[in-house]
Design a protein around this nucleic acid. Structure first.
Lengths: 216, 216, 216, 216
DNA sequence: CATGAATGAGACTTCATTCAT
DNA sequence: TATGAATGAAGTCTCATTCAT
């Protein structure tokens, strides 16, 4: 188990191996309980090399957060086509989000649980990513309001609260989907759309949001 | 700082003091970073006494989780009147929830962040509480469906997903409300109702959920 | 070897044992080469106890320096009778100094070599002690000048230089006396008086300083 | 900062660059705290090259000591003209000594502080140099005795002690002169002559040693 | 009931040193 | 010749936990 022990690799490659191992261990054990020994072993290198390249446990953790935050936002961005109406964009973004978090559960654990649980420096790193996503959602809500010719604008804090709730719901659902067998990204996204777009009231009245039938 | 150092208290009282201190420290520092030394000092007792009464760090943490989980569910239960329609019950439950988490931020940190970040034994404890709340929400959704004479029942897993999303949104909003100045429990609950009951679609179309005007 | 392993001693006693061990190891190996493990073992306690009582290696070293500096200045002060003429006071002070350094060679190594070799915080500690001794010598020189009715006062910096040279010579001689077998404190002090009081010129001309014949 | 990084230099030159760097780092940080990394970087070469040329940290330190000890004794020897009377020779030697130590403070730190603080192998190296200087001083004292027709020869150990004290005083004064602004080598040497040649007694009586007025 | 005294185990980190190119 | 890559060994420090009074 762990990376095959190959000797003398260029620095950039070794660094990625270390980050891979670190994300896995941090995700499994949590920041404090993770030991540099275990990370080094899983990466197939000696501990001093980890320190030589990544400096300290804190820096290593930060590097993990940064890499995975970027990967996640990139994945979401890549999944969305900007020319579609707001609900369709949200639908696509959610699918990309659930797909990515399902494929990288350790990374998601690092971002969603570990990073927020261990003080400012790390939490701030995730907050930046979150803000980017919240901003994306906020743009969608604004666009939807325009499309619907909504007249009295929603107060700014109300929008912030809504975006927060939506993102929170999605995050929570991601954890649930990861833990529940046979729940696909598509299904999770559909549940989210029903919940967030139609609302429970409409849903109960028999008016769910209906996904488009085009995709794989 | 810390409890006033009084000698010879009955065991039950001492134990509560210890749990108070532990919740505070665990909430502030996280499970691993919290030290038994600091907890004992804040509780105003010697470390061996903590071990005598609560056995080990794990047991102490579990006791904290259990006490605070019970307190939270009790608070929510106490806030709801079962004879009202579903949306009103949800409205009241959410208010109670946001009010309690705002008043006990350390406890909320323990339940929402710390307990889920440190492996099965603790996560399971919180999961039990969560299930109780999810069950409550599920009953509400079922009741709402009945009230609306919804015909084809929602598939069970879909309901589970919706409840999960709703709870997740509420949890996320609780953290946000705690961190954002001047957001009251009532406002947070109203945002949740708009979001969860009416849905973004309706909201954009100018049909928000309207809270009743009766309460303080 | 090392202190007899007795259990459960009061804190003050254990602290002294630790300082004893630390002075010995620091004196033998130097600050950096000394390991806390070795010190703890020689003190007959576990390492954590050393940290519990003395905080850190730096603090431990500082405590050693302080204790030994105080002991040395106390010893010198106790050896001098203030009512005698200047040269007799110097003679007595030197004897006390050489006797003390000979009896506590590790302590002398800590003060003379180790403390000065490892940065400001420690050097400053010794500098304070040294200044006290230099001040004592400076008073003697001034007194001698008064006794001799010397008219044009010596410039202040000149006095500082002389005191520095005298103390330096004594320090150096202490190391030499410790390393050379069969050199007593009395002999070392006599050499110093010849050198410092009479000067090489007088000495060569057959006019040495003659010690009083009273003491043991 | 550091030597300019030039490729392909002859071995002898590279070695000197390394020794320069090593003396500086050892002088600044002390033997143990100095790291081979820092030395290699300051020398502008890679660490393996340092090992190729100088074998080990111990050997490197020894090489530093040897080079600087030779440089110092050479400087003193070069400053003394053997045909002059003893006190003039001492005067010249002291001036050369203070001038050299002032110009090479790192080297002086290595010889005076670091080398003596780290065990036999290094201390022995310095002891050899010191003996050479002490021998020089001893010859002067003997010469002075002859000039003064002193009859009963000073016992050998007494001479050793005097030389030791003189050298110790000079060493101490060198450190003091380096640390005190605006004290020149000439002034330091003058203080030493007053102290060592005339003695405090004479000095107090108004009979200092007077330097010749010839030099720059 | 309550605590001062004590420790085994393990964490992070650094360093001198060596391969393989 | 010269170096980027790599590590065994050791050091400081912290913590949960237990005696013995």
């Amino acid at each position: 188990m762990g990376a095959v022990k190959t000797k003398r690799m260029p620095r950039a490659v070794r660094e990625q191996q270390m980050l891979d191992a670190a994300v896995q261990i941090f995700g499994r054990r949590g920041y404090m309980a993770a030991s540099m020994d275990e990370i080094a072993e899983l990466a197939g290198v000696s501990k001093p090399l980890v320190y030589l390249y990544l400096n300290s446990k804190e820096d290593l953790f930060t590097a993990c957060i940064r890499r995975e935050a970027t990967a996640l936002t990139d994945a979401v961005r890549a999944g969305v086509r900007g020319e579609l109406p707001a609900d369709r964009q949200l639908w696509e973004g959610l699918q990309a989000f659930f797909a990515h978090t399902a494929e990288h559960p350790h990374a998601w654990s690092v971002l969603h649980l570990q990073a927020r649980t261990h003080g400012e420096p790390f939490a701030a790193e995730v907050a930046a990513m979150r803000e980017e996503i919240v901003a994306f959602v906020t743009r969608l809500v604004a666009a939807a309001a325009r499309e619907a010719h909504r007249d009295p604008d929603l107060p700014e804090r109300e929008v912030a609260g809504l975006a927060e709730a939506l993102v929170g719901a999605a995050e929570s659902l991601a954890a649930w989907a990861n833990a529940t067998p046979h729940v696909t990204a598509r299904q999770a996204a559909a549940t989210m759309m029903n919940f967030a777009w139609s609302g429970l009231g409409n849903l109960m009245a028999g008016h769910p949001w209906t996904p488009p039938a085009d995709e794989a």
